[in-house]
Amino acid sequence: MKRKVPIAIYFVIGQFIAFFLDGSLSQAMSGVLFKYPNSMVPYLTVLWLILAAFFGNVKKLHLYTWAAIIGFIFDMYYTGLLGVYVFIFPLVVYLCQMVYQILPPNFMSGFLVYFLGITVLVSLGYMANAFIGETDSSVAQFLVNTLAPTLALNLVLLAIAYFPIEALYRTHRQ
């Protein structure tokens, strides 16, 4: 009989693939995603983390540790600005998990919680970037040109990824 691969392995490998896909998608689709003046940013890494928090066992997967690790790599490799996503990723995962526990576990509440999660993530990212002078866009500009398109893109990605990933965790739960 074939031995089952533990879900934790899938989780870690999937996380790194999601991490690299973020950058690759931004590069390959930059004409669409970063069309002036809007910018849509894919956050597949966070999608993977939050869905793991929804369906998986947070303790067994060491989810917060992994969120911090991937956040640190994100800071180091993509932005070169340390100390931003290393804290934001675990925080967003924590918030999403807390809220999701209260709600009935179905797609609509997942959608809602993810909406909140991405809003918190992008807003905190904006605040950190504004603090060090990396961006000069005003709050109004940020809301219209960054937050709204980013939310739209990421909710579409969630709708695509929600059920396959749920199935993956369900088959491994028994």
């Binding site: 950058g23 590069q27 930059s30 970063f34 993509y78 932005t79 970037n129 990396e134």
Partner: peptide, 15 residues
Amino acid sequence: AVITRTPSSWASQII
């Protein structure tokens, strides 16, 4: 060659 682009609205960076 370009490997990837920073997924961020503000840091317009490529690697």
